[in-house]
């Protein structure tokens, strides 16, 4: 196993990314409004938190750097193979990313399609994707679960949930 495949190396990269994030966040806090009469400025607390995060990121960075450059004992947990986030070599990661994309689409379509239809779609797609291919099972389940959820929320808890194109259904339930 190459050094670049160990968890220690992954930690090194993580800490570098975090350092960039912290510098950016700190620069951002300098733009906050300054309050004349305040003893503690609105920017103070976030800045302290960024400093705290910075200190421990540096510690993580140094720890990992030492481990990567000097080598580790075989029993060190950081000497194991790091998990992958490359969707081209790992089908699992690719599927996870696809689910994330679906979720983003789901959010976008939430009030356009309405909760029930939107949920039924995403649920059928994911079930099919992860290997449940029996359409006779997945279609009814995917429709009934969101429908029950909607009914419970709308009727019993009077929480109004967007129905989108299925709006007539709500009026039907209202009449009953």
């Amino acid at each position: 196993m190459k050094k670049t495949q160990t968890k220690a190396f992954a930690n090194l990269i993580c800490s570098l990314l975090l350092l960039i994030f912290e510098v950016w966040a700190y620069v951002e806090t300098t733009g906050f409004r300054v309050h004349k009469r305040a003893f503690v400025q609105p920017a103070t607390f976030p800045q302290i938190m960024i400093c705290g995060m910075f200190i421990f990121t540096v510690i993580l960075f140094l720890q990992s750097l030492l481990k990567v450059t000097r080598g580790m004992k075989p029993e060190d947990p950081d000497n194991e193979l790091s998990p992958s986030i490359n969707p081209f070599t790992h089908r699992g990661v690719a599927a996870a990313m696809f689910v994330v994309v679906l979720c983003v689409l789901y959010t976008y379509l939430f009030d356009k399609l309405g909760y029930v239809l939107d949920s039924a779609c995403i649920s059928i797609i994911i079930m099919y994707l992860i290997g449940k291919r029996d359409l006779k099972v997945i279609i009814p389940i995917s429709i009934i679960v969101p429908l029950i959820m909607w009914f419970v929320f709308y009727k019993l808890l009077t929480v109004n949930i967007p129905m989108g194109v299925l709006q007539p259904l709500r009026e039907l339930v209202d009449k009953l």
Partner: peptide, 16 residues
Amino acid sequence: KMLYPIILVVSLLGAF
């Protein structure tokens, strides 16, 4: 395989 999608749609409704 059926549980995960169901958890997903129920949880997102909770968030909403």
